[in-house]
Amino acid sequence: MALIGLEELRAAQRRIAGVAVRTPLLPCPWAATGDRRLWLKPESLQPTGAFKLRGAYNRLAAMTAEECARGVVAQSSGNHAQAVAYAAGLLGIKAVIVMPDTSPGVKVDNTRAFGAEVILVAPGERDTLPAELVERHGYVWVPPYDDPYIIAGQGTVGLEIGEDAPDELDTVLVPVSGGGLISGTAAALKLTCPGVRVVGVEPELAADAQASLRAGEHLSWPVEDTYRTIADGLRTPTVGVLPFRHLTAYVDDIVTVSEDEIRDTVALLARRGRLVAEPSGAVAAAGWFHRADEVGGRVAAAVVSGGNIEPALLAELLAR
């Protein structure tokens, strides 16, 4: 399958207009150190609280009438779940979502509130049950990242950064899980702003993407390892096949951050940036604050990918 190009990215941008929010690029003077400056792209401001709406709506809106009538099934720890449920509701499509039983309650509740049927399973079954449901019921499978429409939709984040960024922007930080967001964002930036470096950030406890990129081959981590991280949206044990092709073509490097660094950054974004970020959404900014030598660059933008955090966890992290 070919890498996505500008035509697919621009088509996605037109398709999601008026549904997904065109989030601002926020300057962070409180984050400046010396001549280093940071901007934040708060995808937590989307109607579903995360960037996933871009890809989900782009995928569902491109379906045929026959596909829409069949309904859709998706698997997700929460943000893709909410996005598919919300998009399906707008388009009048039945949605069934398979979620691990470790998903935060706020994400499960929101997915149901958007009108989807939720099936909770053990983490190891999350990625296998959808295929069975497709076979049994004829649903259209909407994967969370390994799909060109999903990648193109997420890539609109990169298009917007390229359009809004100051001329001196030299680095963009993006969280990595299954790879849909960084794939699309990196493609958009490299095709429109070729001088900008794209650096992925993921938890040390779920660093399969970094291992894969540096080894030059598609590697997988055990589920029991990746599920140790507090960043529940980044626990995917391996990047997708199509995202891995984009990573090797467009991503300059991937760095990792510790659990304490993620926790500290959630609190920092809330206190200083007035932004509610879930742990997964804070990872890219954590790379800027805690791994400056590895990240490099002078003027960066970090994608705050989501803000769907349990209130009790947010209170705990703010009390640290």
Results as ranks from 00 to 15, higher is better:
314 L>M: 07
75 Q>N: 14
159 L>F: 08
244 F>Y: 11
201 V>A: 08
66 E>Q: 13
67 E>K: 06
7 E>P: 02
116 A>K: 01
116 A>T: 01
4 I>R: 02
50 A>Y: 04
121 V>W: 10
79 N>Y: 08
263 R>F: 08
206 A>N: 05
170 D>Y: 11
197 R>N: 09
48 T>W: 01
218 H>D: 06
145 Y>K: 14
130 P>F: 08
124 G>K: 12
274 R>D: 13
258 S>H: 03
206 A>W: 04
247 L>D: 02
113 A>I: 07
243 P>I: 06
76 S>Y: 08
76 S>G: 07
172 V>H: 06
287 G>M: 14
278 E>Q: 14
197 R>Y: 11
82 Q>L: 05
277 A>Y: 09
75 Q>K: 11
146 D>E: 13
256 T>W: 07
125 E>W: 07
250 Y>L: 06
168 E>G: 05
228 R>I: 01
228 R>C: 03
277 A>F: 10
242 L>F: 11
107 K>S: 00
186 A>C: 10
310 E>W: 13
207 A>V: 03
94 K>R: 10
151 I>M: 07
157 V>W: 02
9 L>M: 01
187 A>I: 03
124 G>P: 06
19 V>P: 04
87 A>L: 14
120 L>W: 00
146 D>T: 12
16 I>P: 01
220 S>A: 13
191 L>F: 08
202 E>V: 02
251 V>A: 05
249 A>L: 12
87 A>G: 12
50 A>P: 05
252 D>R: 06
95 A>G: 11
30 W>D: 12
91 L>F: 15
306 G>L: 09
144 P>M: 08
285 A>L: 14
105 G>D: 05
285 A>G: 12
291 R>V: 14
165 A>C: 11
291 R>Q: 15
297 G>H: 15
108 V>A: 03
200 G>M: 07
147 D>M: 11
242 L>I: 09
280 S>A: 15
227 Y>M: 03
2 A>G: 03
11 A>M: 04
27 P>A: 15
289 F>P: 04
203 P>Y: 02
315 A>P: 05
312 A>Y: 11
24 P>M: 11
229 T>G: 10
215 A>M: 07
261 E>A: 15
242 L>A: 08
161 I>S: 05
170 D>M: 10
65 A>V: 09
222 P>T: 02
164 D>I: 12
186 A>G: 10
230 I>T: 03
140 V>M: 13
29 P>V: 10
266 V>F: 01
87 A>C: 14
30 W>M: 13
57 Y>N: 00
58 N>Y: 00
203 P>M: 03
12 A>W: 01
255 V>L: 11
193 C>F: 04
194 P>G: 10
303 V>E: 09
111 T>C: 00
179 G>Y: 01
214 R>D: 07
187 A>H: 03
274 R>V: 12
53 L>E: 06
273 G>Q: 12
49 G>H: 02
3 L>C: 13
160 E>Q: 07
281 G>W: 14
208 D>I: 09
235 R>E: 00
17 A>N: 15
78 G>Q: 04
2 A>V: 04
96 V>W: 01
188 A>M: 03
60 L>C: 08
269 L>K: 12
290 H>W: 15
